[in-house]
Design a binder for these strands. Structure first.
Length: 155
DNA sequence: GCCAACGTTGGC
DNA sequence: GCCAACGTTGGC
């Protein structure tokens, strides 16, 4: 199967590209949206590349690149009553929520800001720049992926 | 099945 | 901090 490309959002204050660089890899826990879950459960493969997006940040935008290193498996934080991601409706036999693991690839020289993504005609149609788009795990066309990487490396 | 109310996301 | 857009819930 051909390699696919994704974008994943994280609040920079919660877990940033610097945190990922420090730790090397991480569990992508806490996704509580069915569309995003379905992507992680059904579509992500080891080796797929990920644009690492900082939301609620200054600037908000793509801060680096990561790679999927483990395919979907149950998100254990949903079972933990003390976790902020606890979901009493998710039971261990039939887990509602799924996570993947991703590993650090690189931090961009400069954040490819949302503002810059929006004005780049080569990125027309990219999901993340659509108004009101909240999906935290989303597919990215290869041509868009390559263009964002170029922006991150050359600015 | 409809849809109003509610909670959350996330840009600004 | 504000608030628009969105997803989910629950009454009917």
């Amino acid at each position: 199967m051909a390699k696919r490309y994704w974008l994943m959002k994280s609040e920079a204050a919660v877990f940033s590209i610097d945190d990922l660089a420090r730790d090397g890899k991480t569990h992508w826990e806490g996704v509580r949206n069915y569309q995003a879950r379905n992507i992680m459960r059904d579509e992500m493969r080891v080796g797929d590349l990920v644009l690492y997006y900082h939301s609620n940040s200054d600037p908000t935008g793509v801060a680096g690149m990561a790679r999927v290193c483990r395919t979907g498996y149950p998100d254990h934080t949903a079972f933990d009553a003390k976790s902020r991601y606890f979901d009493p409706k998710s039971v261990k036999d039939t887990p509602t929520w799924i996570m993947v693991d991703i590993e650090f690839v690189e931090k961009f020289a400069a954040v490819a800001s949302l503002q810059d993504l929006k004005v780049n005609a080569r990125l027309d149609g990219m999901i993340v720049i659509k108004r009101g788009m909240r999906l935290s795990v989303q597919p990215v066309d290869k041509k868009h992926f390559d263009e964002v990487c170029k922006m991150g490396k050359t600015r």
